[in-house]
Amino acid sequence: MNTMPLFYRNFIRLTFFVIALFIANTQAAEAGNRKPMPIKGGFSLVDETGKKVTLKGYRGQYLLIYFGYTYCPDICPTSLGIIAQVLDGLSKKSLNKIIPLFISIDPQRDSVEYIKEYTDMFHPRLLGLTGTVAEASRAAKTFGVYFAKAEINPEDSTDYSVDHSSNTFFVDPQGRILEVFGHAPDIKMVRDKIEKQLNR
């Protein structure tokens, strides 16, 4: 009979499980060749110049897509600041192959004019897209992006913040997702991955 108290046996089991999980994880990370993920759905929005654009219309180009809103005080500026630094570090050849997009998940407040001014503050190549609520919702759904109004000011219903996913999507010319970067990724890591892909 094993006289070890149940707690310790369970603890040892758990420790082994955690170590195994960790090793498996590290290997998966090192392998690094994820399969491109086909995108189900699409979007139909207007860009910051007022032109109608669709996801399909961007076929043939690499895309770097971030969903956010221009009233966003911190999370979006952090993400867009990182994207700007990624773009600044790319070779000119690579920069011309990629279109960075900022898609509004708050189209009620993000007008075409405003989204242009906002995206230009971060990088001249960054293109803002907005649309109707239904169009923006479809775009977010296509990429599995969550968003919901939060902290609505009781005195002013147009004053609110928006909870949202803070991922950046790297899409290939065939319209497949190559990478999903989480919030505030390492700039060099993102730049290296993009540069490597663009110079294959």
């Binding site: 952090t78 700007a84 630094q85 503050m121 971060f122």
Partner: peptide, 19 residues
Amino acid sequence: KAAGAMGGTHKMGDVHKMH
């Protein structure tokens, strides 16, 4: 600071130029 500044968390944040 610049719209895309990061403070001390990312090296280049403070010096990122405005376009």
